[in-house]
Design a binder for these strands. Sequence first.
RNA 1: GCCUUCGUAGUUUAAUGGAUAAAACGGAAGUUUCCUAAACUUUAAAUACAGGUUCGAUUCCUGUCGAGGGCACCA
Length: 599
Amino acid sequence: MFHFLKASISNIITENFQQNINANSIQINATPTDFVGDCTIVVFPFTKFSKLNPEATGNFFGEQLKLQNSSIESFNVVKGFLNIVFTQQFWLSQLAQASNQNNYGFHPSSGKKIMVEYSSPNTNKPLHLGHVRNILLGHSISEILKACGNEVIKTTLVNDRGIHICKSMLAYKKDCEKREMEIGSINPATESMKGDHLVGKYYVIFNDLFKLEIEKLKAEGLNEDDATKKSTLMAETQQMLLDWEAGKPEVIALWKMMNSWVYEGFDATYTTLGVTFNKTYYESNTYLLGKEIVQEGVANKVFTQDDDHSVWIDLTADGLDRKILQRKDGTSVYITQDVGTAQMKYNDYGMNESIYVVGNEQDYHFKVLQLILKKMNKIYADGIYHLSYGMVELPTGKMKSREGTVVDADDLMNEMITSAKLTTEERGKLDGMTDDEKQKLYYTIGMGALKYFLLKVDPKKKMLFNPAESIELQGNTGPFIQYTHARICSILRNNGLERKDVNDVIKNYHLHQLEKALIQEINLFPDKILESGKEHNPSILANYTYNLAKSFNQFYAELSVLKADTENEIQFRLHLVEMVNKVIHQSLQLLGIQAPSVM
RNA sequence: GCCUUCGUAGUUUAAUGGAUAAAACGGAAGUUUCCUAAACUUUAAAUACAGGUUCGAUUCCUGUCGAGGGCACCA
């Protein structure tokens, strides 16, 4: 919001010191509350060419700025910090401008097209807490990038092929045989289970059976490696994968059936989370294209083929390792499929930027992927951005499926909603609501708590998920912000005044310090959206929203509408508070969080 | 072993190289004749350690210690 100041400073520097300086490199911050001023310019960097001490430099720039900008009321210099005070009129007109804007905070079209890939599940088990962080990040950053003026395509890549899904398939087949039932006659409906959970159950069964077999073989004197090699279960699984690649009809039929169960289950989870995709990619469709590109790379001598026919790329010159792209038996590996998917995405959309929301355990993988595509001279290589996020840890340690410490997404969401219900009922403020409305509200609050809890942390950092604490609804939480929104809605609802136009209300209005502080915070909104988008970091917006809600609460404890002396003061505060609510509402929406008007 | 990320109050998180390191939870003490107390006010408490770079370091560099993650013809 201080762009005009930066431009002004930049001009002063060129005129007086014949230096060219990038306006964006000038530091302007909000003034800490203990000092007089609205914003603070750091003048240390200017002393190099001003040849004056910091104080004198600050005074010089302060005077020049005041001459050039009528919106500056006064300034003062403390050490190397130039504090600027703006006029009342300036702040009042800022509020009026924001208030008159339809989509305040949203930016004009950038002309850029950005793809965001997120969720990207395997089809052998249900979604868990880690996916939830991924999905919320992906959805939120998509919305934020839209608000920054970009066209956004939301995609997901389903990992629908490979040895893992064969394990579930084999366990399912064996169970059918054991119970002497036809394939397909055991299904989500007969078991009263979500499809993804049913398939996940068979994945667990496979691992249990496999473990038993290994133990048995080890008891016969084999070591771990040899036991794995001798395992008939593993051999059967691998055979199944080969049959799948060969297109054996009964295997394909089973695969299609079980995957369809999983997709139904995923869709239900996505609906509860409130997220959507514009396009779904399947690895079963992209891995062949990947293999083609590998051949192209071999022909172009970007890749080398060993005597055993496996294909490699040597990245040691770039500080990385030698990486395999295709097995000796000709089947594709992980990175092959990603190369294919990248190409297919670009063929389909021709986007400028492609964001992958994927955990940080794959940092190396994405470095390699981008480098390979660069070496292949793919023009879309530079547009690839890995939005890498840290793991979600539990108080008991890492989530490990083997130890049964995985937090299931569906279970978690249900718990959050139940917990929201309990706390809300305790407060007993929902008289007059139908059961349906109540249920909807519990959902809104429970999901708001979960989403905000996961989004308020910088994605890059690992985070600790404490189930007991996440359902806490006080402090820096989603429900605190939602509650603030509901209160403001109530304030706007309950006053019987006919509202006056904001431009009339601000005439000759005398601003209170707390009112000015709120306007200042509202003014930051457009910049915060841009910053969040640029940094690919929704937590910037999340924390901003919390601070705004908090500022409102502090403001309102001192200066409620009822405490106003004149009608004009009431009118002004209604406009101010309404603007706060617009920003909170808009901001929550960008985070994928609903804002109830009553709670 | 090699590569990589991270160490901030008791706990969970903030802080584009800038002023006295900011909040929340938990602890202690208060505030309802008043538009939603899921609120507000007061209070104690932290930059792992040792160097370096400079006007100035939680932030950049080096080392030590500690905790993750990656180095497979798994995805």
